[in-house]
Design a binder for these strands. Structure first.
Lengths: 217, 217
DNA sequence: AAAATATGATTGTCAGACAATGCTGTCAAG
DNA sequence: CTTGACAGCATTGTCTGACAATCATATTTT
């Protein structure tokens, strides 16, 4: 399922390293370093870097080389806004298209999420959320929406992780997803859209509170 | 303004070649060929290809190499749908944010567009449209929306060119843009959103009619 | 005719090289 | 003491050439 070429593996490694904070936002990367760390040639590395640059996880400036992307709150907020719009639309479409299997999958993912919340397991939460959304996006029958959302969410991964650590946010989040799922199961498209948008807005608020150096709006 | 590195130039060349139909959709590209045509090394070429792949202008399958992306009508329609949503939002935001200079620029672009229509100048039409939208997106103060739209529009460039050739479509299009601009000048955000969405929907319909092998809906 | 195999084309990956550009710190001039 | 020119190092941009892995096609075998 994942391409097995060296450069894709390298890209995946770097991606995880960035998500896990091995490299700080804004930090400059040096090709030679990465090459020896990943044990690949510069040619392959540079291709991997192009992939990450396309995902906006790194910035690639000619003659200055790669650096880890850093995001301003303004930009993060824009992403949340667009995400709300797209995710709302996805929910709307999914409400009338999801089959029983997909709904079951979503419910299972939600249960898993709640377990992870109770267990205070950050990785588990992220995984369960991904499962939940994958099922919904798979059923919304718009590869374009799914693709754009995936790209946007990747760019705020670390914000999500951080904001989830706020007391009570994870539990709130579970409730919001539960409501969204209820609308989907009831085939209430408009309700699903509203629930999805509401969830993103609340996630955005939580992220704002956790963002370094931003006061309330 | 455009990066002057060899690989960016190559990417731009290939982009134009694809837009201009030098390569047919689905056609397989051969690295060695492209290298000699562009007179660059394989390493640089492959980086350029990664850029185009990120823009979805080509498909890059491991061990099978690059081929020009081909789009199904279903996918094109998804793109038009999302484009309508985003462009509507952009118009909504722009209505309350555009300054006088930007509005003037848009009006100038519209005049240019109408001249190009009268002159039956396809390249002129595309250029003027780009100018029009650049001004609007610049004023909507959402780099994310602008960025996503740019990506989506690039993927349907050849559809736009083709559908514009339908008798009367270009003139209609001018009228729709004129209405959109009128709303923006009147600071009517909701009207602007509606006008923008309507314009995209009509463009979509025109594209459908021009799409090879698709009947009416 | 179908399956198996051999052959050639193409991609994936590497190593090493060198010029162009960017960065840093020294030194001289104001 | 600050500023600016300059030298030297670090890093990137790009190329060449190579070889193994994989794919595609033609040929042979069953």
């Amino acid at each position: 399922m994942v391409p097995k070429t060296v450069l894709h593996l390298a890209a995946e490694n770097l991606r995880q390293a960035i998500f896990n904070g091995v490299f700080q936002p804004g930090e400059r990367l040096v090709e030679a370093d990465l090459c020896s760390r990943l044990d690949i040639s510069r040619a392959s590395l540079r291709e991997a870097l192009r992939i990450l640059a396309a995902e906006k996880l790194i910035t690639l400036v000619p003659n200055r080389g790669p650096s880890v992307a850093s995001i301003s709150w303004a930009e993060a907020e824009e992403i949340y806004d667009v995400r709300a719009m797209l995710e709302g639309e996805a929910a709307f479409r999914a409400a009338t298209r999801l089959d029983a299997g997909a709904l079951r999958e979503m419910r299972a993912a939600l249960v898993e999420f709640e377990r992870a919340v109770a267990r205070r397991d950050p990785a588990g939460r992220l995984g369960a959320t991904a499962r939940f959304y994958d099922a919904m996006l798979g059923g919304c029958e718009s590869a374009v929406i799914a693709e754009l959302l995936q790209g946007l969410v990747a760019r705020i991964t670390f914000l999500r992780a951080r904001s989830m650590q706020r007391a009570g946010r994870a539990r709130e989040s579970a409730g919001e997803l539960r409501r969204l799922l209820a609308c989907l199961e009831a085939r209430d498209a408009s309700g699903a859209r509203a629930a999805a948008i509401d969830h993103v807005h609340r996630a955005c608020a939580a992220a704002r509170a956790a963002f370094p150096g931003v006061r309330a709006a």
